[in-house]
């Protein structure tokens, strides 16, 4: 599904990703762990197409297409989703309008008919209920006045309505209390299917207790230095990153 080969990326000439390779297949959940400054968020943003990062070397193939050739919104149309570590507040734009515009943009990219307002409302309400989000929050401006946990939950609502092939979730667990973490984990698990891939980027083992990964990778200084099964996450929890790096 996703194949990253020898990826190098920099921001203003500062190298962040230094030859990262990773392969994610359908039905797999991968977790990338690593210390601060390892380049985890840069990887997520680069995959989503943020233009502040420049790819200098390497390739990324997503579902057979050259991902790096695509604009950010086209990547979403192809089935990629990035859950933000810091979701952006957009005053003046209602959550509902935002999500409906997003869904219909993706559908238009795929040559599908737009969803009617009624069908959309039904679908989004069901997802909000599944994620225990107060439906009133759908009417509010995107992320404005949301708590940290509510913002992350809102990311999950967006992920579920867009139903991506590959979800990259950047520190989706940070800043969540235990109840919110469980709800977010339920959302991720609902997205976990034989035909989808999930890449969790996280600092802590905690989320992985609720979303069991198939593969765990350790990222240090812009590269993946170790890969293994879920047991690797536990080992990291015990001994920290120092031993691995």
């Amino acid at each position: 599904m996703l194949q990253i080969d020898n990826l190098h990326a920099d921001i203003d000439g500062k190298d962040i990703l230094k030859g990262l390779s990773l392969k994610i297949g359908a039905g797999e959940v991968h977790a990338i762990m690593g210390p601060n400054g390892a380049g985890k968020s840069t990887l997520a943003a680069t995959l989503a197409g943020r233009d502040t990062y420049t790819v200098s070397k390497g390739s990324v193939t997503f579902q057979g297409k050259d991902l790096l050739e695509l604009e950010p919104h086209e990547r979403v149309g192809e089935g990629l989703f990035l859950g933000f570590q810091y979701p952006v507040e957009i005053p003046g734009v209602s959550n509902l309008n935002f999500m409906r515009t997003a869904l219909n943009s993706v559908r238009a990219y795929r040559g599908e008919e737009p969803v009617s307002a009624g069908d959309f409302l039904k679908a989004i309400r069901a997802i909000a209920a599944e994620l225990k989000m107060d439906p009133e929050m759908l009417k509010r401006y995107v992320n404005v006045g949301f708590s940290g946990g509510e913002k992350k939950r809102n990311e999950m609502v967006q992920m579920r309505i867009l139903d991506p092939k590959l979800a990259i979730l950047d520190e989706t667990d940070s800043g969540l209390d235990i109840d919110a973490l469980r709800i977010v984990a339920d959302g991720i698990n609902a997205q976990r299917r034989a035909d989808t891939g999930i890449l969790l980027i996280t600092h802590y083992q905690r989320l992985l207790d609720y979303v069991k990964p198939d593969f765990v990778h350790v990222m240090v200084a812009g590269r993946i230095v170790k890969s293994g099964g879920p047991e690797l996450a536990h080992a990291l929890e015990q001994s920290g990153y120092a031993d691995v790096a």
Binding site: A48, V76, V106
Partner: peptide, 11 residues
């Protein structure tokens, strides 16, 4: 905000 919107598929 622009990136956030485009990262949701909006042109």
């Amino acid at each position: 905000a622009l990136f956030y919107l485009t990262s949701r598929g909006i042109s």
